[in-house]
């Protein structure tokens, strides 16, 4: 008897420790994975590609030690099944050479940071069903051409996931949870790690030349094409947002019209009831669920408008960042010219 209680308490202890997982603080990614992601994304430009991240989940750190690319997807069921086979085959092969074969998420390339879409959220939900903790690493080749390592590790916030899963994405619930558009995605800081061996090789092989390729990228003066496309995207988003806003206005207008109708109906019914009372008859009920004007109108989901808002703020940040860099370059050029 004592034994079983012991056993149970042990089990309980185990399950309780399993439940309490420390929040994810850092994504630690190996240089190898960084290079592989960049290689894959750059090679297939301008097509957008994805791949799987492999690694380990250690406490509050998610280690990404390797990754492999997915073939470009095609709209064909047979090929889709092929893709699943490919994935299994690749995992099996990598396990054989002792690569960590835990899926910890996926990576994808993006065009000017336009990744905040419903599809991304759906993919997150899919992954989340199978693995407790997953991240999406987003790489932006166009931004990297400016001499920045544009890698981002993202995950959905817990509160957003809960709302999204229950399809509760309406105004009241959002107010309840105090969830604003900033709280959809959570960016997790990235740490890069390299094995001592790699570090030794790279130190040895680092070229003597004081000027690196990334310096050229950074000091390039032409930012106009990048800015232009950013602005174009921004304008598109603004249009989308205003369409969304119209949708809400339409909804609210309908709601208020419905409420006016309900009021009118109620007034009529009351007057009628008064008359019936005076005539000594039974009053009619003050509610009529069969009447179409009492049917609640469905509130449109706010996911889209939240995502668009996110997107817009992302473009704003990018434009701001590049503009700030541009100032640097311009004044540098001025100084050079003055000399």
């Amino acid at each position: 008897m004592a034994n079983t209680t012991m056993a149970r308490s042990f089990l309980q202890a185990v399950s309780s420790t399993e439940e309490v997982t420390p929040p994810l603080r850092v994504v630690q990614i190996e240089g190898l994975a960084v290079l592989k992601i960049i290689k894959h994304c750059n090679e297939f430009l301008p097509a957008l590609v994805t791949g799987q991240l492999l690694g380990l989940d250690v406490g509050s750190v998610l280690e990404v030690t390797n990754c492999f690319p997915f073939p470009i997807r095609e709209e064909d069921e047979e090929i889709e099944a092929d893709g699943a086979n490919y994935q299994l085959e690749m995992m099996r092969c990598l396990r054989e050479v002792n690569v960590d074969n835990n899926t910890v998420g996926w990576y994808q390339s993006t065009l000017l940071g336009s990744f905040q879409t419903v599809e991304l959220i759906e993919t997150f939900m899919n992954y989340q069903e199978n693995i407790r903790r997953c991240v999406c690493i987003v790489y932006d080749p166009s931004r990297s051409a400016q001499g920045v390592l544009a890698l981002k590790a993202l995950k959905l916030t817990d509160s957003f996931m809960e709302l999204y899963r229950n399809n509760n994405f309406i105004g009241e619930k959002l107010r309840e949870k105090k969830l604003s558009w900033v709280d959809i995605f959570e960016e997790i800081p990235i740490k890069v790690s390299n094995s001592a061996l790699v570090s030794a090789f790279m130190t040895e092989l680092e070229p003597e030349s004081p000027v690196k390729e990334c310096d050229y990228d950074r000091l390039r003066l032409s930012t106009a094409p990048y800015m232009e496309r950013n602005l174009e995207f921004l304008i598109d988003c603004m249009e989308d947002l205003s369409a969304e806003q119209n949708k809400f206005q339409y909804y609210y207008r309908n709601v208020s019209r419905q409420q006016a109708q309900q009021q009118a109906w109620l007034q009529k019914r009351r007057v009628e009831n008064m008359a019936r009372k005076a005539a000594g008859e039974e009053p009619l009920p003050e509610e009529d669920p069969a009447n179409p004007i009492f049917k609640p109108l469905p509130e449109p989901s706010r996911v889209d408008s939240y995502l668009i808002t996110n997107q817009i703020s992302n473009y704003c940040n990018q434009i701001n960042g590049v503009a700030a860099q541009s100032f640097n370059r311009l004044y540098l050029m001025k100084a050079l010219h003055d000399d």
Binding site: N42, G147, V148, N194, A196, M202, T203, R218, G321
Partner: peptide, 26 residues
């Protein structure tokens, strides 16, 4: 060349705590 693009600072050391931002690289 690709390694240069990313920056040897990241690939050379065993741990980098933070990715350099726009202005840091600049």
């Amino acid at each position: 060349i690709e390694a240069e693009r990313i920056g040897f600072d990241i690939l050379k050391t065993t741990t980098v705590d933070k990715l350099p931002g726009d202005l840091v690289g600049m």
